[in-house]
Design a protein around this nucleic acid. Sequence first.
DNA 1: AATCCGTTCAACCGCCGTCGA
DNA 2: TTCGACGGCGGTTGAACGGAT
Length: 350
Amino acid sequence: MGHHSCCNKQKVKRGLWSPEEDEKLIKYITTYGHGCWSSVPKLAGLQRCGKSCRLRWINYLRPDLKRGSFSHQEASLIIELHSILGNRWAQIAKHLPGRTDNEVKNFWNSSIKKKILSHDIIPSFTTISDIHTPYNIGFFESFFPNPNLIQNFNHHHHQDNLYLPTSSQNLQDNFHQIDTKVDIHNHLNANFLHIQNPMPQIVQPISNPLPCEDTWPLNCETLHLNHNLLQNQVSKSDVTPLNKLMQQYDHNLVELETFFPKLSDHSFEDYVCSILDSSDSKEHEAPTKFQCYTPSIIYPQDQNVEVIHLDNIDALMSSSFPSSSSQIVTNPIIPLGWEHDHRFKSQLQS
DNA sequence: AATCCGTTCAACCGCCGTCGA
DNA sequence: TTCGACGGCGGTTGAACGGAT
């Protein structure tokens, strides 16, 4: 067990802090500031290591800490941020004034994650009336509009690899709705950007397009983030859940492009990163070019593709970039046959 | 009343990046 | 350039607590 160098030089106490120790630390820091943490314990008369003092102050004694339970708004914000940033608790905590990374992490691990994982006990269901969970179908629906996707999610999520695209408002509702049953098929929110779940088993050898069911929402429009803070927190190389998803397909570009057919000559990863990492674009200015993949369904017989959803990319972008124009997708390269889709017609005419 | 068990969360550990000598 | 000190971070642990049996 290695200890910090500052801890080796002196006999240090460990474990819970006593009120007397807290008082000493508060008195010292409010008088002198912490300065070099390694010197704090000696100067404050504490038999602790500097690191322990720092942690105690940051996580517990700081006067600007907000104590008490997390609000619904904070919970939904944490989930939203976690879907983007992954387990970067310090980054997430920066968006929650008065909350520490430790607090956010504990809240996630003890509350949010547990609630989500608890739904593993429901393998599948075919009708709404089959669903009886403490959080009602709305809780699920906020993550997965299609029950089939819960199975896919069960395949996909791992202990530390949760990726939960969601709707903040739905989630907030679900923290206090207990018994309401919701018709999930009426809750396919048109204001979502839909990205097809890339699980191979959902690509079915049929001759007609599937309805809009094999999609999952990636809703950013209710994100109330400090954009300046967020924009530098995600990059392609970061190990976020989204990047993990992309890395999963990096080794097999053919497979990737099967599930995310191109509309332009840019990669899906570029498209995703263009949303998440706006560092290339000027602040408060929408990107001039939006690399665009669309969700699709594959026809194995002829390898043609069909667009399911393209409606709300601009909604997503306009929410992510406060002053963005409504014309986000520019000069898309429309695959053969797609030009008949009314959503592309408007693009081509403009 | 005693024990067990699950949950919460404060605290610790180990690693990494930065900085200055 | 190297190395040690330090701060910061995420993962993990274990004491404390409360509910169930």
